[in-house]
Amino acid sequence: MAVIAELPDNVAVTKLDELVSWCRKNSLWPMPFATACCGIELMSTGASRHDIARFGAEVFRFSPRQCDLMIVAGRVVMKMMPVLQRIWQQMPEPKWCMAMGACASSGGVFDTYSVVQGIDRFVPVDMYVPGCPPRPEQLIQAIIDLQAKIQREGTLWGREFDAPSRQQPKRALQES
């Protein structure tokens, strides 16, 4: 009796989470926030040879309301950061953010007065893609890794986003 009372809950919740995550991970709709050179490689990834459609992520939408994966490809400067934040806020949950390239992850070669030294100081980032620029293959690998992450951690109600570590920007605003 006790077993029957507990089992359906247990089974149902786990499976639904997995099912939903499975759906989500295979239909990522990227929002290409392409600012610089990495954006060209992002275009290559979408074009004929590398064809990102093979991984269910080809529906580039330029309206943030329709997207769930923001790919920040290129350096973000202080004049652009408020725009990026607004677009991030306009995207519906659940959403993920990918910092493509050295510039978006850390500022890259541009340690200058105007370039933000890593977008993770100001918005949450789920996946970093190293490289300057990352090759299309590498971007595809990052999307596969993100899919694995979604499958592994994803929950129906997005509880994975509530973890305290997700609440803070990755690096505090300490600056020498």
């Binding site: 400067v77 202080m78 950061m81 408020p82 934040q85 991030w88 806020q89 959403k95 340690d111 200058t112 007065y113 105007s114 370039v115 933000v116 030294q117 100081r121 100001f122 918005v123 949450p124 986003f161 509530d162 997700r166 609440q167 803070q168 920007p169 605003l173 600056e175």
Partner: peptide
């Protein structure tokens, strides 16, 4: 005026002076 020689390459902290958005607010 950043290309003046008395302005440092890394700036005077303008690039860090932006609001931060977390998951909870986003």
């Amino acid at each position: 005026h950043p290309l003046r020689k008395d302005y440092p390459l890394q700036g005077r902290g303008e690039r860090h002076n932006l609001p931060v958005i977390t998951r909870a607010e986003g």
